[in-house]
Design a protein around this nucleic acid. Structure first.
Length: 896
RNA sequence: GCCGUCUUAGCUCAGUGGUAGAGCACUCGCUUCACACGCGAUAGGUCAGAAGUUCAAAUCUUCUAGACGGCACCA
């Protein structure tokens, strides 16, 4: 069979359809009853999203694990799905409505709006799942889930009701983060801080009633003064001691507010007097609670001033109101000053609008018990076991310890509507359905809460709701839950450890009694070329699909795996190219094997048979075995880069550069046994590589003579022929062969030294020369056995082995490990000065090393306290250097 | 302010106590019958700086400088 001259990724990527159609991804393909399970749930991508580099990285890592475990015979499930992404979808639909029909959501009503959101989801929500097929993701599509699927919704309501009934969910009036643009509350985690250098601190003077004095307060949000209900000072602040208990005539209003004492006030900061606005500031809210202050709300849901702000301000945007307030104070002569001030502003993570702290009635999850559950799981079970472990474990624990209650209501229409109903008197009835609620209410007419739940509330259940848990059925109704929970590992980004990982731990443990997963692999962020996170506004993004088109999916995948060390990584196209080249190298190595495969076939070898084979064959088997051990070990500990590096060097260095070259004559001469052997080694190596480069390896594997279901893991014997279901090579210990490895190392060293002399002496490759080697009998035996290969690869025409070198003075020389000497007579070719220079350089290098070693060995402390074998190895090295240096010096003086 | 991470060859990064590694780029040489997405041979690092522990430090400790991340505060 003849292959094209270069690998074409597009052709190979066609295999996905075959895999999917044959059900290779579903755990049911595994027919061995005793198979252990291995499961991963995907972090559900936002249904509005398209694939970005972070997904590509994480999906690659999950797919590598899934394919690896599947090949090991585990009943493997990687469960896919998407997240309904409340705000994002809502925004898309609102925008579409505005553009196409010039209407607002209010115009069409809630029911119609939700219907359109579903339509939008059906129409555009499959982008990312289609892209995942391109990635080669071996997910079980038959188990695909969406956070708003009927069962998952039922689970959400069930959890809500349960938490409410035990008092872990409550409704309350609190200061929350309000986004005036999205007109919804946000949790603390959805708010980011942004430092602004151009902030202002405005000093306002408030007249104290019944005196001619004023008290000055400083504020960054002057417009909130309209909602002030007190001025506070520190009780021990003598400057204001006499004012405590007096009343301030609040300018721009007709209100009088008290001057109170509260420990919260820092006398050192600003003027030491603080305006208190309990409805618009979390700290002021606390002060207000302590001092029984009125809570006066002066803004509406859009961030505009309301009637309570007074007729002059009603309807003004908060920033317009701010300017107007300052201007009016100036007119009144009550503006003390406006100082420059560096300020950090809370920003809505999604729309970048400045978040307004505002008093609002919302639903919360109490975090006391939840936090304890998560901390307990970490303490007693070490779960989640983060990888890399530090720093994530510390940060996670630290965050949990300082956790505040979680705001879970959102003022949106798209999402899980809160299962709470109210009667006309405002009594609340929480139930799974409206009819149950009505039953609880004694049949009264009820109105459902208009808010929906935070999307993360439903994704918090993802680890078990996806397996069929609804909270309403018995264990026998949910076999997947029994089989696949806990999952084995979660692969996700650092940014959602709090937002998602922690909540899955709490909720899964609470409602199923199980942990959601044991290990959490935390990936670094893929940064743009400029070292900043990829983003549209920076325009430094790299589209994975473009990379797939340019370099192939396999090259992109193995590149991503090669950088998966947990650290952030700057994007670099050139490095993908490395792996595109790698794919082509493997393609061509296979091509070579197949060109010479007449009468050859894949077969297995037992240790006895191997023992009688040539050193070079035992060598490659030994190297292959070490590689499979290393890959296994690396994947067990999520050291993807290590696995990739071992595979890369095995294929390129060991297999291509040396094994193929050393065996070339034998194989091209039509030796069927040699061909069968190399094909068999190649076949195993392809299997090792398959989790990383699924398409390339399948495409090549299918072309090898003699592949078939016999190579399948026993669990998959009946499945159609595919490398996906072959047995992942375990690496037979009997194939490890130090002796062969040493032998071939010597051969490689010799060839390299000869090539070095040729290059240094500028001798054309066309010229063949004689090579003389003198050394121990063991070494000479090894070299003798490989004479032809050495002559070919070193381009020698004569190969002379002897006890003592007998060569003319006009020779270039080198020394091998173990003291053997190599000489190449170069009568007429040698440049004596150049050869002297070459020898001097090598001697100098040796002596430099010897100097370091001597210094160490003459240190009595070292000799006494270092492990004996260490000291011995240095002594041996010194002897070796002495021999080599002596030999080279002899050569040098012979030339002088 | 608190906690944490990073600083290694021109570039991007591996390397958790015992003679510094890879890929790419660079230099030199190759139409060697699998591959120029290739082959061969070199060159290139006082491992950010300082101090300490140790027979021995890129690796452990402390400090300094720079880059970054998280959390808290912010009248």
């Amino acid at each position: 069979m003849e292959l094209a001259k270069a690998f074409d990724p597009k052709t190979a990527e066609g295999w996905y359809q075959t895999w999917e159609e044959n059900g290779f991804f579903a755990p049911e393909i595994n027919e061995a009853a005793s198979s252990p399970t291995y499961s991963i749930v995907i972090p559900p991508p936002n249904v509005t999203g398209s694939l970005h580099m972070g997904h590509a990285l994480q999906h690659t890592l999950m797919d590598v694990l899934t394919r690896w475990k599947r090949m090991q015979g585990f009943r493997t499930l990687w469960l896919p799905g998407t997240d309904h992404a409340g705000i994002s979808v809502q925004r898309k639909v609102v925008e579409q409505l505005r553009k196409d029909e010039g209407k607002s959501p209010i115009d069409i009503g809630r029911e119609e709006f939700v219907r359109r959101a579903w339509t939008w989801k059906e129409q555009y929500g499959n982008t990312i799942t289609e892209q995942m097929r391109r990635e080669g993701a071996s997910v079980d599509w038959s188990r695909q889930r969406f956070t708003m699927d009927e069962d998952l919704s039922l689970a959400v309501r069930g959890v809500f009701v349960a938490l409410y009934e035990e008092g872990n969910i409550y409704r309350g009036l609190r200061i929350v983060n309000w986004c005036p643009k999205d007109k919804t509350v946000l949790s603390d985690l959805e708010v980011k801080e942004e430092t602004r250098k151009d902030g202002k601190l405005t000093y306002l003077k408030y007249p104290v009633k019944g005196t001619d004095r004023t008290i000055t307060v400083a504020t960054t949000r002057p417009e909130t003064m309209l909602g002030d209900t007190a001025v506070a000072v520190n009780p021990s602040d003598e400057r204001y001691a006499d004012l405590i208990g007096k009343v301030v005539e609040l300018p721009l209003t007709d209100r009088e507010i008290p001057i109170i004492a509260d420990e919260y006030v820092d006398a050192e900061f600003g003027t030491g007097a603080v305006k208190i606005t309990p409805a618009h500031d979390p700290n002021d809210y606390q002060v207000g609670e302590r001092n029984n202050l009125e809570q006066l709300l002066v803004m509406d849901e859009a961030g505009k001033m309301n009637a309570a702000a007074g007729a002059d301000f009603e309807g003004l945007d908060r920033f317009e109101a701010r300017e107007k307030v300052v201007a009016r104070f100036e007119e009144l002569g009550l503006l003390e000053k406006v100082a420059d001030y560096e300020i950090s502003l809370p920003i809505c993570e999604r729309c970048k609008t400045i978040v307004e702290p505002i008093l609002s009635e919302q639903w919360f999850v109490k975090m006391d018990e939840m936090r304890d559950i998560a901390l307990d799981v970490m303490r007693t079970e070490g779960v989640p076991h983060f990888s890399p472990r530090v720093p994530h474990e510390k940060v996670y624990t630290n965050w949990l310890e300082n956790l505040k209650d979680w705001t879970i209501s959102r003022q949106l229409w798209w999402g899980h509507q809160i299962p709470a109903w109210y009667d006309d008197d405002g009594n609340v009835f929480v139930a799974l359905t409206e009819s149950e609620a009505r039953e609880k209410a004694g049949g009264k007419e009820l109105r459902q809460d208009q808010d929906v739940l935070d999307t993360w509330f439903s994704s918090g259940l993802w680890a078990f709701s996806t397996f069929g848990w609804t909270g309403q059925q018995s264990a026998t109704d949910t076999p997947d839950l029994e089989r696949f929970l806990p999952t084995d590992v979660l692969v996700t980004g650092r940014d959602i450890i709090f937002l998602w990982v922690s909540r899955m731990v709490m909720l899964t443990k609470k409602f199923t009694g199980k942990i959601p997963f044991e290990d959490v692999v935390v990936t670094g962020t893929v940064l743009g070329k400029d070292g900043k996170p990829m983003s549209k506004s920076r325009n430094n993004g790299v589209d994975p699909i473009e990379m797939f088109d340019k370099f192939g999916v396999d090259a992109t995948r193995i590149y991503l795996a090669s950088i998966a060390t947990g650290a952030d990584i700057k994007w670099n196209d050139l490095l993908i190219e490395t792996y595109r080249n790698f794919a082509n190298k493997i393609w061509n190595a296979t091509r070579f094997c197949l060109l010479n495969s007449e009468n050859a076939s894949i077969r297995t070898f037992d240790a006895t048979e191997v023992r009688s084979m040539a050193a070079v064959d035992r060598w490659i088997l030994s190297r292959l075995t070490r590689t499979s051990h290393a890959v296994d070990r690396a994947l067990e500990t999520y050291q993807y880069h290590e696995a990739v590096s071992r595979l890369y060097h095995f294929f390129w260095d060991d297999f291509c550069d040396w094994y193929i070259e050393l065996k070339k004559d034998e194989i091209t001469s039509g030796d069927a046994a040699a061909s069968s052997f190399i094909l068999s080694v190649l076949e195993k190596a392809l299997r090792l590589l398959h989790p990383f480069m699924p398409y390339l390896t399948e495409e090549l594997w299918q072309k090898l003579p003699g592949v078939g279901n016999a190579l399948h893991n026993t669990a998959y014997r009946n499945a159609k022929q595919t490398i996906m279901l072959t047995d992942f090579p375990k690496g037979d210990e009997n194939f490890l062969d130090d002796f062969a490895e040493n032998e071939i190392s010597a051969v490689i060293e010799l060839i390299t030294k000869i090539r070095n002399i040729r290059a240094e002496m500028n001798i054309s490759p066309a010229i063949k020369f004689a090579v003389h080697v003198a050394g121990t009998k063991d070494l000479l035996d090894v070299l003798e056995a490989n004479t032809e290969q050495i002559m070919k690869l070193a381009r020698a025409e004569n190969f002379v082995l002897s006890d003592v070198l007998a060569v003319p003075k006009a020779s270039a020389k080198a020394v091998l490990t173990g003291g053997a000497e190599v000489a190449i007579p170069l009568e007429g070719l040698i440049d004596f000065e150049k050869e002297r220079e070459r020898l001097r350089t090598q001697i100098a290098k040796l002596l430099e090393e010897k100097g370091r070693l001597d210094a160490q060995l003459s240190n009595s402390n070292f000799v006494e306290r270092a492990p004996e074998e260490k000291v011995e190895s240095l002594r041996a090295r010194v002897l070796e250097i002495d021999e080599q240096a002596a030999a080279l010096s002899r050569n040098l003086s012979a030339l002088e």
